[in-house]
Structures are given as C-alpha cells and as structure tokens.
Nucleic acid binder design. Structure first.
Length: 329
DNA sequence: GAGATTTGACCTAT
DNA sequence: ATAGGTCAAATCTC
C-alpha cells in the first residue's frame, strides 16, 4: 500500500472501527443462527443461546428468529403488501449509547407512519429512506421501544440503501455539518466501542454448550444499518489470512486490507485510545477486519466441543474505561 | 415554500 | 374480523 493510502487509513480508523463493529454484530448474529441450526440438528443439544431482550417484546426483541422467519421478516420478502426483495437486519439500540436515540444511525430517514401494536406499550414507527423518491432507495426501518425497558429500542431494517449516502457515507455519518459529524462520530465511536466491549460476550463451556450474549441492556450499534448485506453468504469468504489464536489465547489481528479503505471518507479523526494493537510487537496498528470475524465465527463453531477460548482485543484495554474486556469464547 | 412529521383511513395477510 | 403496514392530506418546522 502506498504511503498516501496509509495516512488516509490512519485518519479513518474510527470510521472503519464503527463499520467493523457493525460487521461484528452481524456476524455474531450469524453465529447465533448457526448455533441454533446446529442445536436443531442435534449437534449441540446443550446449546444455549442467550440474548438480552425483554420477555414480552416483539419478535425482533425477543430474539425468536423462527418467529420472524415465519412472519417473513427474515430471509425472505414480506408476504404483506408489496414484496420488496430485501435483506432484513435486526438490531437493538439503546438511547444511552446512541446519543440521539435509535433514529440517528447515520442515514437519513423519513417517517411515514406510526402504529399501535397489540401487546406493545409503545407504538411502532415506520421509516423509509429520505432518498426513496429521488433515488429509488428502498431501505426502510421500524423502530419500537421496548415494553420493559423504555431505554431499549428494537430497530428492524428492511432493505439496503442504494442511495448516494449509502455509497459515500459510512454508518454513523449524517448529513449535518462536517464539524457536527465529527463530534457525533467521535462520541458514537467511543460509545459503540465501550458498549460493545461491555456487553458482547461469547463463551463456550466445558460441556460443549455455547452461549452467545448479544445486545445486553446497554448494547448498541449506532451504525447498525451497515451497507453490507447478505453477510451469511459473504461469510464463506476465504480471504481471511490474517487472524489466528496465539499460544496465549490472544486473537491476532493482522494488517488491514486495502479494499475496505476505499469505502471510507477522507475526513480525519483521532481515537488513539481505541486503536487496535496487533500482537506482532512492531508498534503497528491494525483493524479488526471482516474476515477476522469470519474466522472468529468459524472458530466458535469448530471449537464448541473443545476447550475454552479467550479473545482479547488489546485496543479495548487501552480505552478510557476500566472494565475488563469481556469478549470471551 | 420545501421538506419532515403526524395521524386517520385504507389495504392486505392471516 | 383483526392486526400490521402503507398512504396521503393536514400540519409543523426551518
């Protein structure tokens, strides 16, 4: 990689990180799905999938994928109304970490409806991409506040952004003034990392049972509407040539691929506390890559019947909070 | 005045 | 019949 690209990469690390964390979340969801499938097939009878959600929440909050499959929200087009061939993503967002609530995820949305939902304390809000008319972007999302924890929101994304903002903005960016975007992005990046570190746990047990803990009460991915659809299909990518577990159970993060940098903007930020140190001891920083997470996902599924694993992202140890990084396997 | 939000009516799947 | 999703006119905000 030429030097200019290298500088640009360093400047854009926070943005990259946001996107990477969004990818991580999606991959964890994918993993959860894989584990569920394995359990269904009798491979993992003791598999437990734990996902924080209020008990009386709608399906996208209760984490009942079967229900959503049945309702057509996942993996297929909705059978209701116009069938938009879309990919559906489900995330939970906490307003405590999202700064501006669940609506501000970096994209421009226009609210087109609100509906009282049976059994739900709060109404569900319906949004579509602001650029639907201008650019034919079909992205939509639904936002619903949790019954039990009013600070929790369930955000269901339907469709991917095909508008200009999807091509030129990273999740977490908005159409506000650049300086405001910087501030928002910095805060969101910090909050995202902290939230991710505090609440994302993956464990395997001696018994072979697996536990995935996603979206605990304060867990959020402000950039949840990542413009990277069809993760399940892409997760089979075999270009993951840079991640491995070391002898001391550290997850090795190796140099960043150039392909992802091209999707970022040229704005600058500095988040040195959150840099990811690789473990080569050469002082170079690197980024948790998408394929690392594919490897990670694969590792979980292949190691379910073996020893405990421990995943240690050093960059989080350097963050300005004192909790132990809880990303374990 | 343009664009966003609200809200009641309407449509469609179950 | 009912519930969820969408439409579109009215209203609000900048």
């Amino acid at each position: 990689m030429e030097s200019n690209s290298s500088i640009s990469y360093m400047d854009q690390k926070p943005l990259i990180l946001i996107n990477e964390l969004a990818r991580a979340k999606e991959l964890l969801q994918h993993l959860e799905s894989q584990l569920d499938d394995a359990s269904t097939n009798g491979k993992l009878n003791q598999t437990q999938l734990t996902r924080y959600v209020p008990a009386d929440s709608p399906s996208f909050l209760t984490g009942n994928p079967q229900k959503d499959y049945e309702s057509g929200l996942i993996g297929s087009c909705s059978r209701k109304r116009k069938t938009i061939p879309t990919w559906t993503e489900q995330v939970s967002v906490c307003e405590h970490t999202g700064l501006e609530g669940p609506v501000d995820d970096g994209y421009s949305w226009r609210k087109y409806g609100e509906k009282e939902i049976l059994g739900a304390t709060y109404p569900r809000s319906y949004y579509r991409c602001t650029h639907k008319s201008a650019q034919g972007c079909l992205a939509m999302k639904q936002v619903q506040r949790s019954n039990e924890d009013s600070s929790m929101f369930g955000v269901t994304y339907r469709g991917t952004h095909t508008c200009i903002q999807a091509a030129h903005l990273l999740p977490g960016q908005s159409t506000s003034k650049p300086e405001q975007q910087d501030e928002k992005r910095q805060k969101k990046t910090q909050e995202t990392i902290i939230s991710f570190a505090t609440n994302c746990h993956m464990k395997t047990r001696d018994s072979g049972a697996a536990q995935v803990v996603l979206g605990s009460p304060s867990f959020s991915f402000p950039s949840a509407s990542t413009p990277i659809p069809c993760i399940a299909e892409e997760s089979d990518n075999n270009n993951n040539n840079f991640s491995s577990m070391t002898h001391d159970n550290h997850f090795v993060i190796s140099p960043f691929s150039s392909s992802f940098i091209s999707s970022t903007t040229s704005e600058t930020n500095s988040f040195s506390p959150y840099r990811m140190n690789n473990l080569e001891g050469d002082g170079q920083y690197s980024t948790l890559e998408y394929d690392d997470l594919c490897e990670f996902t694969s590792a979980v599924t292949s190691e379910l019947d073996s020893q405990d694993l421990y995943l240690d992202f050093d960059f989080l140890h350097g963050a300005s909070y004192d909790s132990n990084f809880p990303f374990h396997m």
